[in-house]
């Protein structure tokens, strides 16, 4: 097994651990393997001498338990009768509120992605305009209108140059919008999971 595969496996097995702590542990193991390789072991030997992943995970969890750092499993509480009655009676209210929240979030996403789409439309239009003005430039050259030729050549170069900047800028904006959408969706999904756990 290579060092990278080992680290990925270990990372997966320790997925319940807080990220900062997990990364610290992983870098500790990375260093241990690198030091063994430096001493003359092959990568495979170095990984093998650190131990089996399952044993390592068992050790880590045992260490955590003895130091009281373990994450307690969430206890499922049963919903009381009056809570159910309240939920049913309040349904006209909370269903409407939930639907409103859904519409608000949806419209937020739609407007965000509309901006992204319009930015792309402008970006795509730039090379088209560049090619168009280049065509006009050539045509006016044949007609002998040199002032117009220069103006068109300038516009063409300007559009082409602007396209390069716009392309990278819009790509950055798209990435940002995607990150925002993903994080928001994750947040919503996560909050629902937590609600289910508390039931």
């Amino acid at each position: 097994m290579t060092k990278n595969v080992f680290i990925i496996y270990l990372k997966t097995k320790l997925s319940t651990m807080p990220e900062k702590e997990r990364e610290e542990r992983l870098s500790f193991y990375r260093e241990m393997i690198d030091d063994r390789i430096e001493e003359g072991m092959t990568e495979e030997e170095a990984v093998a001498s650190v131990g089996k992943i399952d044993d390592i995970v068992r050790d880590i969890l045992a260490e955590q338990q003895s130091t009281g750092q373990e994450q307690r499993p969430r206890t499922k509480k049963r919903r009381k009768a009056w809570e159910i009655v309240l939920l049913v009676l309040g349904s006209p209210l909370w269903i409407v509120l939930l639907a409103t929240a859904f519409v608000v979030v949806l419209s937020l996403f739609i407007s965000l992605w509309s901006i992204v789409a319009s930015l792309w439309a402008v970006t795509v239009a730039l090379p088209v305009a560049s090619i168009g003005s280049l065509g006009a430039c050539l045509m006016s050259l044949f007609e002998g209108n040199f002032v117009f030729t220069f103006v068109m050549l300038g516009i063409s170069a300007f559009c082409a140059g602007l396209f390069v900047f716009a392309f990278f800028g819009v790509r950055y904006v798209t990435k940002g919008a995607w990150f925002f959408t993903k994080k928001t969706m994750e947040g919503i999904v996560h909050s629902f999971y937590r609600k289910e756990d508390k039931q």
Partner: peptide, 19 residues
């Protein structure tokens, strides 16, 4: 550093990386 410490202790005590 970590690995050197393990090596130094090895003749006296075997300790895992996680410990």
């Amino acid at each position: 550093y970590g690995y050197e410490m393990l090596k130094n202790m090895k003749p006296y005590i075997e300790m895992s990386e996680s410990t």
